[in-house]
Amino acid sequence: MANTVSAYKEKMKEMSVLSLICSCFTTQPHTNSIYQYGADMEVKPINKRLSGQSFEVILKAPADLSPDRPQLLAPHPKRKDISVDELQKRLEAAEDRRKSQEAQVLRQLAEKRDHEREVLHRALVENNKFSRLAEEKLNHKMEARKENREAHLMALKQRLREKEKHAAEVRRNKELQAELSG
């Protein structure tokens, strides 16, 4: 088992990265056909090794490219001489664009500031409305408690009066009973 693992490690060190990638995609050997990728590259498989597939990548020189294919590096057209008047017009146009952009940015900032003011105003109105409602609720609760206390005091006074009447009646009955028995 140890020999197999060490042999596998040695083979992995010998494998090229391209061979490793290609061997992952397919296990079947390809025929000796040449694959063309565009007009500037060919890939040709080489006889299979013990480590997997191997390929030869052939890059063609730019001179080998077909004449109907556009060149990758086309020469830039020469710039024409620009007059002072043309430069002045371009500078003025650039200044106008800069001023227009600056005005647009200022308009956007003003709109943003106005929007923020509006949001702040709405928040203040909502806050005042909430505070007023909270104060009204508190006053209502305080009045209800005051009324409850007054009603409780009135009930206590009424019970006290009834007890005093009852006590006066009991005293009178005792006096009458004392006179009658005495």
Rank of each mutant, 00 (worst) to 15 (best):
N3E: 06
S19M: 00
E135C: 12
R107N: 07
E164W: 04
Q28L: 12
S100W: 08
V57Q: 02
L73W: 15
K165I: 05
K174I: 01
L120G: 03
A74Y: 12
F55N: 01
K146Q: 03
R98F: 11
N139A: 05
A155S: 08
I82C: 06
K165P: 00
L120M: 10
K141R: 15
S23D: 01
K137M: 10
S54E: 13
T31M: 08
S51N: 05
M1E: 05
S131A: 14
R122Q: 14
E95Y: 11
E92M: 14
K9S: 10
L72A: 10
E147M: 14
D96W: 09
Y8T: 07
T27C: 09
E116H: 07
S6H: 09
N148D: 07
L59I: 14
I21M: 13
F130S: 14
D68G: 08
E162N: 00
V57I: 15
S6D: 07
L106F: 05
A61K: 14
T26K: 07
L106M: 06
E111C: 02
E86I: 06
E95G: 01
R172W: 00
C24A: 11
M12L: 09
L72I: 10
A39W: 13
L124R: 11
N32G: 13
A167D: 03
A94C: 07
V5I: 09
S33T: 15
Q177A: 06
E162S: 01
S54D: 13
K165F: 01
P45Q: 01
H166C: 05
K44P: 04
N47E: 13
N148W: 11
N173E: 02
K163R: 08
I82N: 03
K141Q: 14
D81T: 15
I34S: 07
S19D: 01
R107C: 08
R132W: 10
P75A: 12
E179M: 04
I46T: 13
R161P: 00
R145V: 14
K44I: 14
V170I: 00
G182D: 01
H115W: 13
S19A: 12
E147C: 09
F130K: 15
K137A: 14
R90Q: 09
R122I: 04
P70C: 05
Q158C: 04
A74T: 11
S23V: 00
L50S: 09
A167T: 03
A178W: 01
L65V: 11
H30R: 13
I21Q: 06
E150L: 09
E42S: 07
P29F: 06
N32F: 10
Q177L: 06
R79N: 15
Q71N: 12
D40M: 11
V119F: 02
S54G: 05
K157W: 08
R171I: 00
N173A: 08
S131K: 15
I58D: 04
H30Q: 10
M154Y: 07
N139V: 05
R122E: 01
L20D: 06
R79F: 11
L138N: 10
L180K: 04
